[in-house]
Design a binder for these strands. Structure first.
Lengths: 211, 211
DNA sequence: TCATTCAGTAAACAACCGTTCGCCGACTTT
DNA sequence: AAAGTCGGCGAACGGTTGTTTACTGAATGA
């Protein structure tokens, strides 16, 4: 029988986390496909062979980083979607939440942007799967709104994906600006709000134009 | 005095192009930051030292690839913008042109998507500069349209960037689908058109909502 | 208490890396 | 025809890479 906790497991988790942390730090300036195993273990302060006690290869560490980066975002998204204020207020909230999440998880989000179309298939697919789940959640949230009356499920799904893609786009914009460049951050916030308003207005008048 | 043409220059250009071609091929399955110099010269069939006759380092080859990938797109974009049909027809044209360009320059576009937020700063900046120019051109095109009356230059610029980002988004979607998966291609085309229509409708009603 | 498990180690492996050097030979200029 | 230019080559440089091996010693379970 294996215990779920214990000194053994805790210590193992600790170096595993150290590998993830050091990896994330090193990946701020390079791609996963060029991150060396020895380079990583050297940064952590363990022997190269120790790596294999935790991950079969680098791609696997990358997949773990995807989970760590986007796992906590699901709750955030559902929380924002739950506020069915339905007015323009939710737009400001969405943009503000995005800005805050990027600020607090900058290396994680950088990693996601960098590897979304990167050279490691397993990581690309893991990211795509997470974004797919995001779109699912947004689609569910949209479906409950009165403004979605008359929309086909397929078109609603497209709209949900547009919102998710827009969130990624906005996050990437915040990434490109220096963290302390307030002017740039305000410019990005303004642009993001404007884009979301345009999309929302288009959504509201979509059915009229169809007639 | 240096001749612009001649056997010498032509032969040099030839191996330079061979380096770019082989690089693009190798970069279909990895990132620029992990592409080895020897790996590249081996694929071309020249000695490692020959590389330095054409590029100071790999980042420089990457920048050259950016130019090769996006250079010919400016003319395409301006051509599409010039068709001021102003109706929903231009949307179908835009999506069709995007699909065609991706199909005909698949490795180039993959390279752009992969390195847009990649680990090589010089390449990231080169791509950002090109996309900035695209937005400039779209903004100029939009300004001439009657539908842009009453729009501030700043907001018009945001709209232009939204269109460019949307084009990139659509191109990436075509990339992710297999080239011969007609069903997927049709799905992506449908979604892209729907998104563009939503944005266009939002644009048309933007000024009403402001009052 | 004693046997077992297992995360981490040190060492060795062959293979590969980017870069520099002097040299060659075909093209180009005078 | 002679002198100069220069793209490409082969060889060598020190250093790094991922992976396997047998091992140690502390946490574990009986």
């Amino acid at each position: 029988m294996s215990h779920t906790s214990g000194v053994r497991q805790a210590q193992k988790q600790q170096t595993r986390q150290a590998l993830l942390d050091a990896g994330l730090r090193l990946l701020e300036h390079q791609n996963l496909s060029s991150l060396g195993l020895r380079e990583l273990t050297r940064a952590v302060g363990v022997s190269p062979a120790a790596f294999y006690r935790h991950f079969p290869d680098m791609a696997d560490l990358g997949v773990a980083l995807v989970g760590e980066s986007l796992g906590s975002l699901h709750a955030v998204i559902r929380a924002v979607m739950a506020e069915t204020t339905d007015s323009g207020d939710i737009i400001d909230r969405t943009v503000a939440v995005t800005e805050r999440y990027v600020a607090e998880h900058r290396p994680h989000i950088r990693f996601i942007a960098r590897e979304r179309y990167g050279g490691v298939r397993a990581v690309r697919e893991a990211i795509a799967a997470e974004l797919h789940r995001f779109a699912d959640e947004v689609a569910v949230g949209l479906a409950t709104q009165p403004a979605s009356a008359g929309w086909s499920p397929g078109d609603l799904r497209v709209l949900a994906e547009l919102y998710v893609d827009h969130m990624v786009m906005t996050a990437a914009a915040f990434l490109e600006a220096e963290p302390d460049d307030d002017a740039a951050r305000r410019r990005i916030t303004h642009a993001a709000r404007l884009r979301m308003r345009i999309i929302s207005i288009g959504r509201a008048h979509w059915l009229d134009e169809q007639g």
